[in-house]
Amino acid sequence: MADFVTCDLLDDNEDKVIYVLPPIIDGQAWRQYGGVSTFGGQAVTVKCFEDNSRVKELLATDGTGKILVVDGGASMRCALMGDMIAKSAVENGWVGVIISGCVRDVDEIAKMTLGVLALASIPKKSVRKGVGETGLPISIGGVTICDGDFVYVDNNGVIVSKEKLV
Rank of each mutant, 00 (worst) to 15 (best):
R104S: 13
A2R: 13
G141K: 08
Y33I: 04
R128K: 15
G148N: 10
G40F: 03
L80D: 08
T6Q: 11
V143D: 03
G72M: 07
D15F: 06
G72N: 11
F150S: 04
S161R: 06
S126G: 14
T144Y: 07
E50H: 00
D8H: 11
E14M: 11
L119P: 04
G96N: 06
L58W: 02
G27C: 05
K16N: 07
I25M: 04
R77I: 14
E50G: 00
T134P: 01
P137N: 10
M1S: 12
S161N: 07
V97L: 08
G82H: 04
V153Y: 05
D8N: 14
P23Q: 13
C7T: 13
A2E: 15
I109W: 10
Y19H: 14
G93K: 02
K125R: 10
L119T: 07
S139D: 13
W30A: 13
V97A: 04
L80G: 06
F39M: 03
L114P: 00
T64M: 02
L136E: 13
Y33F: 15
V131I: 15
G148E: 08
T61K: 12
E133M: 06
Y152F: 14
S139Y: 02
W30F: 12
N156G: 08
S88M: 13
F150I: 04
S53C: 09
G101K: 02
V44I: 15
L58A: 00
V70N: 03
G96A: 10
L119A: 07
G142R: 07
R54A: 15
M76S: 15
I140Q: 06
A118T: 05
G132E: 09
M81T: 07
K125Y: 03
D11A: 14
Y19Q: 09
G96D: 02
K47H: 12
R128C: 15
D26W: 06
N155F: 00
G27A: 09
G72I: 07
N155P: 00
I140S: 03
